[in-house]
Design a protein around this nucleic acid. Structure first.
Lengths: 175, 175
DNA sequence: AACCAACCGTCCTAAACGTACCATCCGATT
DNA sequence: AATCGGATGGTACGTTTAGGACGGTTGGTT
């Protein structure tokens, strides 16, 4: 009997990932997060064990067990879960984003911009090239969503690299 | 006697704001957050009542009371607090940002991009013009940090507006 | 047999979230 | 004088997240 539970952001991520994979263990979810939404929306892996269980209580997913080996828990969407996901996707989303950037925060409070720029530039160049590699390997098949998201993510990275690059001492970090 | 407390992101924000204002009540902090870092780093106002008290326990700020009227609590940095803030500002900051964007998340999971774009575009155009207005009103005096931060924030907004604009039906939303 | 790396999962404490709720002050209306 | 609304100012509280410590299992090497 499904108890009433609130669907949080984490819930929707789990529902979304399950809809993409059909069926997954918490460990699978953890791997999927790391390779996909984890790039911009991080969550502790412990949540990926707790949340599916919570969703099961609410009737949004079913919990079965691997017949063999470790008998790990396998989750997949119920009809209710799929509907909840689709309802969420259809809802209007006027909220702006939240950019939790420690470097930006420190910059605001007066940290030395060159010192920040130097390390941030390395980090974001790294990220940017990761994303570009992913984009380059895009198959023709499959849903567009993830690639569109990656496109926006890439633009943000590009912008960020540009910003920090303008604030490094010429020659201090380059090539 | 200061007890050991961990300094969290919230702590540093409070320390930073106190260093800018000299002295502030939680309500003042709330106002300051709304006008400054709140643009990119949101926190519930209840935190701004709890956190200074916590910092006082740790000896990072002092708590006094207004002599008159409401006798509100006034906080200001101690030497320890100032040092902690400066140490934090000096620390290396290699972490990338976290972009908590509900629209991006939904896009990833297959939401209709035009529906998203329409509302997001309105939101971000709004934000962008706010930022531009702030930037235009910049005084010559004062510390640069906030303006640099605002500059980066503005670039991200501009990028975001560009992205969503590319994905709206021509004429669907535009003036 | 011993070892190691990758795999897999649980648990715990503190902090953050979000919102409901409450109370006061002040100026403008009726 | 009474009332109203809005800005001011603050508390409480249940839930979710953060983030890491810790422990076990599996399968392949030396």
């Amino acid at each position: 009997m499904p108890r009433e539970i609130e669907l949080t952001h984490t819930s929707h991520i789990v529902l979304g990932l399950l809809s993409m994979s059909g069926e997954a263990t918490p460990y699978d979810l953890k791997q999927m997060v790391a390779g996909t939404v984890g790039h911009f929306w991080s969550l502790p892996h412990s949540q990926l064990y707790a949340e599916p269980a919570r969703l099961a209580r609410g009737g949004y997913v079913t919990e079965t067990r691997e017949p063999d080996g470790r008998r790990r828990k396998l989750y997949s969407l119920t009809e209710l879960g799929r509907e909840a996901l689709e309802a969420w996707l259809r809802e209007l989303t006027p909220e702006p984003y939240m950019l939790r950037d420690l470097a930006l925060l420190k910059l605001f409070f007066g940290a030395d911009i060159q010192a920040l720029a130097e390390v941030q530039l390395a980090t974001h160049r790294q990220k940017l090239s990761e994303y570009e590699a992913l984009l380059a390997a895009r198959p023709d098949q499959g849903s567009a969503g993830p690639w569109l998201a990656l496109d926006l993510g890439t633009r943000h990275e590009r912008e960020t690299v540009g910003f920090w690059a303008e604030h490094t001492q010429p020659g201090a970090e380059d090539s």
